[in-house]
């Protein structure tokens, strides 16, 4: 089964096209490494997959569902870790996760302390996000994802702003989720680390499928080398 299918997807910001006629199939249970230079369209692609952005042209389906008709059902299956922490500055870590448990039935409030312990934030559970470093915010985003148990996890530069311990934590969490059959799409410039985790590789250049797979027809991803 396919986790995501993009058919001729294009996305424009003003006059600039960030993605151009992109057709990609992401099979369920695989981990896709998404690479490309700055401005290649990696973040745009992730945001379209997360349904945070709509394609200007083309069609998207996630787990066989269309965002036009089943947006909320799709979103319940997706976890997103990006540079946007989605946090309220004046809320503590525990309050942020408790708020999540109020909205998401999959999130069990009883699991929050253990999850905070797991991501190394137990000692700061009652500190507001305002006092958190970028790395700590990233850890809290990971805690959200662990609690949400998504079927499709999208990660945008998950290793940036993290200390070595944080990087190890991301790798451990991502591997664990992959082991549970979660489909992963990871955009990163850290190709070596990405390859160690992912089994498929999607390279973007200028909003199109990049050189390594340009000779292939649409609707495809290639195995990482």
């Amino acid at each position: 089964m396919e986790a995501a299918r993009l058919t001729n997807v294009s996305r424009r910001y003003g006059k600039r096209w960030a993605l151009i006629h992109l057709s990609v199939l992401i099979p369920e249970g695989h981990a896709v490494l998404l690479t490309g230079p700055n401005g290649a369209g990696k973040t745009t692609l992730l945001r379209i997959l997360a349904t945070a952005l709509s394609p200007t042209k083309g069609a998207l389906s996630i787990f066989g569902m269309s965002p036009a008709t089943e947006l909320d059902s799709i979103r319940r299956k997706i976890g997103l870790v990006t540079h946007k922490s989605h946090l309220y500055e004046e809320m503590t870590a525990i309050e942020s996760l408790t708020l999540l448990s109020h909205f998401d039935r999959k999130v069990n409030a009883k699991d929050i302390p253990a999850t905070l312990e797991r991501v190394g934030l137990a000692a700061r559970a009652h500190s507001t996000a305002r006092t958190f470093s970028a790395g700590m915010r990233r850890r809290l985003s990971l805690a959200r994802v662990l609690l949400q148990q998504p079927d499709l996890l999208l990660l945008d530069e998950p290793f940036t702003q993290l200390d070595p311990e944080g990087v190890a934590l991301v790798i451990e969490v991502v591997r664990e989720l992959k082991g549970r059959g979660v489909t992963l799409v990871m955009a990163t410039h850290d190709v070596e680390r990405g390859r160690a985790i992912c089994d498929l590789h999607l390279h973007l250049v200028g909003g199109r499928l990049g050189a390594p797979i340009s000779s292939l027809n649409a609707t495809t991803v290639v195995k990482a080398e």
Partner: peptide, 18 residues
């Protein structure tokens, strides 16, 4: 403004909150 600060409103919609 507080919803915009870290994309918190987007976060709510992606959970998804009605």
């Amino acid at each position: 403004r507080i919803e915009n600060e870290n994309g918190a409103l987007e976060g709510l919609r992606l959970i998804p909150v009605d």
